[in-house]
Structure formats: structure tokens, C-alpha cells
């Protein structure tokens, strides 16, 4: 494979700068996405149609649209509307970096709404009823019973979504934000070597994604530490007895110790 280590080494400082931009966009999108998702989730779960329907449309539109089109729409499309172009927020919408974060955050928020809703709805009704029977106020029930449980239920889905959109930030290059992928493209255009910069960028992305995964696994262990003992007890015997049953039928066997990637 025509991989050029010296070019990879020389371009590393620029690549790391691109990576820093990718991380910055990811972090800002996380915060802004969460800030958007909370009110929309509450509206989505509201018993009143007047709140529920617009929230459902929000989710349907921004979840169904590719991030690439959202980039174009926020950066080029909104500039065409007089209310934006002449409005007080124009300095924000004229900035490519801000537009990238807004576009990605809308996409992220719409996924987050469904994840939060799924987590909150998975809390057994009996627990909420029990708190009410014990005279605990609805607000406290929400804070100390529903939210902590919902966080636990939703963590895995949240992890998948965060890691998914981090990889999705690669599209911000199309509106002139110089992230890691855009840097790799720049190096390619100057050196006519496509393989080296793309593979260097791939290695850096891989490190970032796996660091995030380790962080999430740490959070998972912390939130679910009360389950650790039971998990071990449960996993071993089942996996051990599954193996021969599978193997007998097929020659296939279930690997038992492996965790999902």
C-alpha cells in the first residue's frame, strides 16, 4: 500500500489542529443539542396536541434529513431569507463554524428527543405510582426516581447516537469549516497522495471514537454498578450452556465473553 510515513509525520500538526476543530464542534453540538432536546422532549410527551404535534414534526424533519443537506440549508439556504439576513442574528448565520454547529445540533437534538422519551417511558409505572402513594411530590419523583432511571435506560442509545454524530461531523468541510476530514482533503490536494492523509485521519478518528467509547463504558459501569454482581452471575452459566446447544446444531457457537463493539 502506498503509505508515506514521512508525509504522515509532516502533516501531523495540521491534522491535530483539524482534530481539535472536530472535537470542538462535537462538544458544542452536544451542549446545544441537549439544550434544544429537553424542551422538545417535554413538548413531545405533553398530553396536549398543540405541543405534541409540532415536536413530532421537528423530530421527523430533522431526523430524516441528512446532515449534509442541513449544512447547506443552514449556511446557504437561511442566508436567502430576508428575516435572517437583515435580522439581529445575522452575525451567527454568516459564520460557517456556527452554522455547522447549529445544523448538527438540530440533527442531534431530534435523535436525542426520541432517546430521552424512550428512557423516560421505560420507567415502570409502578415506581411512579409508589412515589405518589408515599406522598412524594411529582417534581421530586421526577428528579429522584424517573430521571436517574431514564438515564440508565437511555445511556446505550445515547452512546450510539453521540458516536454516530461525531463521525457525522466529517461533513462540515462542505461549508468551509476545516475539520479533520477537510484537513486530510487539503493535504491530498497539495500532495496528490490520497492514501496517506486519509489513513492518517482515519487513525486519529479511530482514537477519538474509542476514547469516547471508553468514557461511556466508564459511565455505564458507574450508573449500573448495582447490577455488576448480578450480571456476572447471570452471564457465565447461560453462555456456557448456550455454546454446546448452538454448536451441536450448526457448528456455530456463541462467543461468550465478548462485548459488543
Amino acid at each position: 500500500m502506498p503509505f508515506d510515513p514521512s508525509l504522515a509525520w509532516d502533516s501531523l500538526p495540521r491534522m491535530l489542529f483539524g482534530l481539535a476543530n472536530t472535537v470542538g464542534i462535537t462538544a458544542l453540538t452536544l451542549v446545544l443539542g441537549l439544550a434544544m432536546a429537553i424542551p422538545v422532549t417535554l413538548a413531545r410527551m405533553s398530553p396536549r396536541r398543540i405541543f405534541r404535534l409540532p415536536a413530532a414534526w421537528f423530530v421527523m424533519f430533522f431526523r430524516g434529513t441528512p446532515a449534509l443537506i442541513l449544512m447547506y440549508l443552514v449556511y446557504y439556504g437561511l442566508a436567502q431569507l430576508p428575516s435572517i439576513h437583515d435580522g439581529p442574528l445575522w452575525p451567527i448565520f454568516a459564520n460557517a463554524f456556527a452554522c455547522a454547529v447549529i445544523g448538527l445540533a438540530l440533527n442531534h437534538a431530534s435523535y436525542l428527543v426520541e432517546i430521552l422519551r424512550g428512557g423516560l417511558e421505560a420507567v415502570p409505572a409502578g415506581l411512579v405510582e409508589a412515589s405518589a402513594a408515599l406522598g412524594i411530590s411529582p417534581r421530586q419523583t421526577y428528579q429522584w426516581v424517573r430521571l436517574p432511571l431514564a438515564m440508565r435506560y437511555a445511556l446505550k442509545a445515547y452512546q450510539n447516537e453521540v458516536i454516530g454524530f461525531t463521525k457525522g461531523t466529517a461533513v462540515v468541510g462542505v461549508i468551509t469549516v476545516v475539520d479533520l476530514t477537510a484537513t486530510a482533503n487539503e493535504v491530498f490536494e497539495r500532495t496528490y497522495d490520497p492514501v496517506t492523509p486519509m489513513l492518517t485521519a482515519a487513525v486519529l478518528y479511530w482514537c477519538l471514537i474509542n476514547l469516547m467509547r471508553i468514557g461511556f463504558e466508564f459511565a455505564d459501569r458507574r450508573l449500573n454498578r448495582h447490577l455488576a454482581a448480578e450480571e456476572q452471575r447471570r452471564r457465565k452459566p447461560v453462555a456456557a450452556s448456550l455454546q454446546p446447544a448452538l454448536a451441536r446444531w450448526t457448528g456455530l457457537a456463541a462467543p461468550n465473553t465478548e462485548r459488543a463493539l
Binding site: G168, A170, A184, P194, M198, Y205, I209, N210, L261
Partner: peptide, 20 residues
Amino acid sequence: YASIVMGVPSLLVIFLFYYG
């Protein structure tokens, strides 16, 4: 293999196949 493929943006994979 799965860890590598799942740890890299698909846009980068597309560029790698197209240019490389």
C-alpha cells in the same frame, strides 16, 4: 476489523475509495 470500520466516518471511507 469491525473496530476499525466502526471507528471511522463513512465520508472518509468514501473519499478513500474514490481518490485512493
